[in-house]
């Protein structure tokens, strides 16, 4: 299987873009990350990750609408590409496969 190089943070950002669907842009992603994972990340870190993912071809982008609170500046809206989707699916499949291979009593129980 072809390996997909995705860092953990990149993976989460990529997933968040998928979560936000049509409204994925810098600040929205940062907020969503905060909400969903409780991680307080800086805008610049998110931008850097988005930039990297776009370079890797997992995201595509286009300029969206401008709003007043942005000082009339447009947003860059991101969407997950087929390659990005494939990567997410691969990771998930690999995890599922690993989970399925764990024998029931191999992990110490964490629930009551």
């Amino acid at each position: 299987m072809k390996r997909t190089y995705l860092g953990e943070f990149e993976e989460i950002v990529l997933l968040t873009v998928a979560v936000l669907n049509d409204a994925a842009y810098g600040v929205a992603i940062t907020d969503e990350l905060d909400r969903q994972t409780g991680r307080s990340v800086s805008i610049s870190a998110v931008h850097a990750a988005l930039h990297r993912l776009e370079e890797k071809g997992m995201l595509s982008s286009h300029m969206g609408d401008a709003t007043a609170e942005r000082g009339g500046r447009r947003k860059r809206l991101f969407t997950v590409t087929a390659l990005g989707s494939r990567a997410l699916h691969d990771i998930r499949a690999m995890r599922d496969q690993l989970w399925n291979s764990i024998s029931p009593n191999a992990l110490p129980a964490i629930s009551i």
Binding site: A66, E69, G71
Partner: peptide
Amino acid sequence: HLLEEVQGDLYERYV
């Protein structure tokens, strides 16, 4: 080429 989106995001966060 990045300035518009970056600054826009920064403004939005500021507000």
